[in-house]
Amino acid sequence: MEQAIRSFRQSVTAWSEKEAARVESGARRAGRPTPAWLSWWMAAGAAGATVAACALAALMLTSGHKTEPRQMAQAVAVRQSAPPTAEATHAAPATTDSASRENQPTTLEASMAPISNKASGDADDSDEKLLAGIDSDIAQGTPKALAPMAGWMSDSAER
């Protein structure tokens, strides 16, 4: 009995050492630079990193859900409120206080509306000026951008 138990113990120890060496060599083959006994540390680090990444993703998602609809609502409100404000003051001043309060943009939106109107107006003006310049160049027959090439072509034709 004692001999059998001793052989059993030796067998388990030999098997365990062999398996531990196999695990370690497998880890080395997989490119893990640390020894196998340190893999618990790596696992703990990986778990921590995963938790941190999840927390960061959750934070980003939550903040995105909060800000995106607000920004969209502001943009829609600005677009809707900007043109009628001028017309509404002249054409329909006889609305009730509550109705006008509902139609009026918030302070932020109200402050943004003239800026956006001015910006869009400036953009339209510059576009019109550019188009007018192009039209005049085309009308003259030699667009300024192509003037050097036109000169070169006329020189070569004369030769």
């Binding site: 098997w15 531990a20 340190l38 618990w40 540390w41």
Partner: peptide, 16 residues
């Protein structure tokens, strides 16, 4: 780290 290095083989052997 030292604890893990020292006792890991015995824990592994028992579990194996």
């Amino acid at each position: 780290d030292q604890v893990a290095r020292e006792y890991r083989p015995q824990i592994f052997r028992f579990l194996l």
